[in-house]
Structures are given as structure tokens and as C-alpha cells.
Design a protein around this nucleic acid. Structure first.
Length: 297
DNA sequence: AATACGTGGAA
DNA sequence: TTTCCAAGTAT
């Protein structure tokens, strides 16, 4: 592991001390939480705010307390339970991951990074988050919050550059405490700091535990001059919106929905066509004689 | 490497 | 009201 200098140790110590007091009592942080519960939380939290996840996470685990429980239900039920969380492919992938865990891992969420990465819907972030938060293993965990904290505190820039997993992990590794328990806390604490204090739009530097160590602050808060992120395409009138409208109808109707019924919901025929074709290609919808429905298996 | 993928909270 | 963007992943 790379050498940790005194500055790195000071940053980690300050973040961990702050986190001990400032951590939000999120349900997946409770003691004795199962690896499956952590995995579900990480799927739901991908590109989705904490406040929207909590109630769905509670309901999901009450209904499917283990991977085998979810694997025994049809994917349609997973998609319905996902409700309006967004990116419903995640529900399908989580179901698929549950089947893989049940069939290939004896029903136990694996702790090994490569085994986690091989699960559908589990990428570099989620694999490390589960290994670290569910199993206490000492891996750097870097999400968008941590990327921003590292960009500011270490690189002295207002915003992180374009995602670069290897570089981001190396930057986190350089700060990560050697002790596994302290590393676990720092992984969670850096994310929490980015989520609640070192926020994207209006950082509250007056409340920041590492303000005195922050390179961005020391440099006088220079504006970001690197490559800008591509602007998100407008949602209104988009294919994404059409997919969402179709999925809402499929979740609601517990029977095949005809093309005529869908045409009343998405009036632009070309847009409807692209949405349906995409949903079928993604496995989120199935075409049959009577219309479109959620996948049974 | 760039793009598609949902929905809604917050300023 | 817009606009940004949020515990990313797959292709």
C-alpha cells in the first residue's frame, strides 16, 4: 500500500472524529445488518438520494429478507416493489444478482471483490462498498461524494475531473487508514462529508472538520477550470420519460397492456415505439399477443 | 470514451 | 421557474 504521510493521517483522523458524532442514523448502518441488506441499499442508492431510498429499502427487506427470498419471486414483483425509485433496470439486475447468489454462492452474498464484480449490476463502486461496509474489508470506496471531497481537500480543485476509477481509488488509498476498522469509518465518513457538508452546489466550509487541511480552501477557492460534465438531456419529451410512463402503467396494470392503451399515455408514436423496443431489449417488458407486460421469469 | 438510463430534491 | 445533479453501471 502507498505511504501515508502525516497530512493524510490528519485528514483521516479529523473525518473519523467528526463522523463519530455527525453520522446520520441510516438504517443500513445499524449494527448486525446483513450483507444482503447492505447490497440492497447500495443498488438502491446508485444515482438516488438517501431520503428516497429509506422507505423502499425497509419494505424490500421486510418482504425479501434474503437473496433466496427474492430469487424465488418473479422479476415482475421486484420491478413493482422498486416503484418510482428510478432506473428500474436496477430492480431487474438486483433480482438477477439474487439468483446468482442463490445458485452460485450458496445464498450468501460473497465478500470477494471479483465475485461481487461478477454480479449483474455490481460495478467498481458497489463491489467495494459491499466488501467494506458489509464485511469490514479494507478496500478504498469512492463514490461521487468522496470524489468531490478528494478533489477539494487533496487536489485543491472545486470539482473532480472526469471519472477515472484507478486514479480515484489510488487517491483514496493514499488517505485510507491502515487499521481496517478505521478504514471502514473513513470510507463512510468521506462519503458522509461529501453528502452533507462538502456538497456540490454550496459547501458549508464553516462546518467542515478538515477545513484547516483543505487544499481548495488554502488556494482561495479557485473556480473549476477543467472539462465540464456533459449536460443532462432534458427529461420532458425524452425517450426516458416515455419509458418511465410505460413502466408505470405496466406496474399498475396486473395484466397485459395493449398498444392502444399505451398510445393514450405516450401520444408520440415514434417515441412510444422506441420506448417499448428499448424496454423489451432490456428485459423490463415482454411482448405477447395481448399486449405488453412485466417479466415473469 | 461517450452515452443512455428515471425520478425527484434542492437552490 | 429552470437548472443542477444525485451512495453508478452497462454497453
Amino acid at each position: 500500500m502507498p505511504p501515508r504521510d502525516a497530512r493524510a493521517e490528519s485528514i483521516a483522523a479529523a473525518v473519523n472524529a467528526w463522523f463519530a458524532d455527525a453520522a446520520r442514523p441510516l438504517p443500513w448502518r445499524a449494527a448486525d445488518i446483513s450483507p444482503w441488506a447492505v447490497l440492497v441499499s447500495e443498488f438502491m442508492l446508485q444515482q438516488t438520494q438517501v431520503a428516497r431510498v429509506v422507505p423502499l429499502w425497509e419494505a424490500w427487506l421486510a418482504r425479501w429478507p434474503s437473496p433466496a427470498d427474492l430469487a424465488a419471486s418473479p422479476p415482475a414483483e421486484a420491478v413493482r416493489a422498486w416503484d418510482r425509485l428510478g432506473y428500474p433496470r436496477r430492480a431487474l439486475w438486483l433480482h438477477e444478482a439474487a439468483v446468482e447468489i442463490t445458485e452460485r454462492h450458496g445464498g450468501e452474498v460473497p465478500a470477494d471483490l471479483d465475485a461481487l464484480l461478477s454480479l449483474k449490476g455490481v460495478g467498481p463502486y458497489t463491489a467495494r462498498a459491499v466488501a467494506a461496509f458489509a464485511f469490514g474489508l479494507r478496500h478504498p470506496v469512492v463514490d461521487t461524494n468522496t470524489r468531490r471531497v478528494l478533489a477539494r481537500a487533496v487536489a485543491g480543485q472545486a470539482e473532480p475531473g472526469p471519472p477515472a476509477t484507478a486514479r480515484d481509488l489510488a487517491a483514496m488509498e493514499a488517505l485510507l487508514p491502515v487499521d481496517p476498522d478505521a478504514a471502514h469509518v473513513f470510507n463512510a465518513g468521506a462519503m458522509e462529508l461529501g453528502a452533507t457538508v462538502c456538497t456540490a452546489a454550496s459547501p458549508r466550509c464553516g462546518d467542515c472538520p478538515i477545513a484547516a487541511l483543505c487544499a481548495w480552501r488554502a488556494a482561495g477557492y479557485p473556480e473549476y477550470d477543467g472539462p465540464r460534465k456533459a449536460r443532462q438531456a432534458p427529461f420532458a419529451g425524452s425517450d426516458r420519460e416515455a419509458r418511465g410512463l410505460v413502466m408505470a402503467e405496466l406496474r399498475r396494470a396486473h395484466h397485459p397492456v395493449t398498444r392502444a392503451e399505451l398510445a393514450a399515455i405516450v401520444t408520440d408514436a415514434a417515441r412510444l415505439g422506441r420506448a417499448v423496443a428499448g424496454l423489451v431489449a432490456d428485459g423490463l417488458a415482454v411482448e405477447e399477443a395481448g399486449g405488453l407486460r412485466l417479466p415473469d421469469a
